[in-house]
Design a protein around this nucleic acid. Structure first.
Lengths: 121, 121
DNA sequence: ATAATATATCAACGTATCATGATATATAAA
DNA sequence: TTTATATATCATGATACGTTGATATATTAT
């Protein structure tokens, strides 16, 4: 029953950033910077499965990071706000200077990097 | 600069954003916006345990989001780059417009809100 | 009508991740 | 020296998360 990040603002903001913190969702957001895309196009661009893409799109849509527009049997998704792209750009700018540290960070970090590395036993 | 859109760039950037996506780490980053603080001060400001704070500080430090300076038996932490604060500010700005959606998003979202939060009445 | 296409939904399982708690290290004071 | 204070480390248990795969829904074509 710990109260980590007890402030409502921190909780909400962490959920917002979590939208950017998952590789699959970030991948979707990045490809949408090129302009609106249908789900099929996003699937092709990200090489993710259809259900996985749709699952994450729902999350991104509910969180207001992307917006969807139904067009016949297609669903056209777009970044909902310029600041979403701004955040991605700012993240890129920052990453350009801290990339080495991020890459080497193994604690509380990306699972793929750990499993790809040597196992310690 | 990074070629975002490729999978490696997305992986790295997702790790970067994950630094902001955890409530505990975000809490630390937010309090550090007020200026450099020792670990004890961060512990007091965030109401987190000492070991938990230290664990997350290590991650943030290794990822280059914060910098530490040893001063006697104290360790003074600060945000490493202005863009870290910029990202937080931009997140707040965006959140001001999408907060309702973020709050209601239950899939791929913050665990504390579900388990510790009050049920819908 | 049926079939094909596009997207959404959701349960379930494997695993990454977090907080804890004990311990280690280091510096400063007594 | 011993004690207190400050911070770091790390194994571990609990659980939240993401992918998969099956299925549902909806629209368009035949």
């Amino acid at each position: 029953m710990l109260n980590v990040g007890n402030s409502e603002g921190v909780q909400l903001q962490s959920k917002l950033f979590r939208g950017f913190g998952d590789p699959a969702r970030l991948n979707i957001l990045q490809v949408l910077r090129n302009g609106p895309m249908t789900v099929s196009e996003i699937v092709a661009a990200t090489c993710m499965s259809q259900s996985n893409t749709s699952n994450h799109l729902r999350c991104l849509r509910e969180c207001g990071l992307v917006a969807a527009e139904q067009q016949g049997k297609f669903a056209l998704y777009r970044l909902s706000d310029d600041r979403v792209g701004d955040l991605l750009a700012l993240g890129e700018s920052l990453l350009a200077d801290v990339a080495r540290g991020v890459y080497e960070c193994t604690r509380y970090s990306s699972p793929q990097d750990i499993s790809a590395g040597q196992k310690i036993k």
